[in-house]
Design a protein around this nucleic acid. Sequence first.
DNA 1: GGATTGACGTCTG
DNA 2: GCAGACGCCAATC
Length: 108
Amino acid sequence: MADESYYKDVFELVKIIPIGRVTSYGAISSCLGLPSPRMVGWALYRSTINQNIPAHRVVNSSGILTGRLNFPDPTMMQILLEKEGVVVEKDKVKDFKKIFWDPNEIEI
DNA sequence: GGATTGACGTCTG
DNA sequence: GCAGACGCCAATC
């Protein structure tokens, strides 16, 4: 609702994530200077059902698709990732460290 | 108006 | 190295 919401930055950040790349909540929260990474998850939770944000590219620090169950379709998350070239093994991103995209690397 | 939960992360034991 | 607890802010019940 409010344009000055912090999660608006989260949307933009997630939107600019390159294809075949994934990032973590902690990276986003740290990049945006959020006090708590939970806010990122909260923002994404609302964004996924409100805007078509590629939240499937956002995983936890372990590279696990923690929020896949929260998606409209749990399988959609893995399908989308695999479609983008991301290898997902058991709801976990393979070579997560390799395809991990750091927002601070590019940023604005 | 108060209590609980929620897509997590980091520290300490 | 693994496990458990705490902290943070906001929205919902």
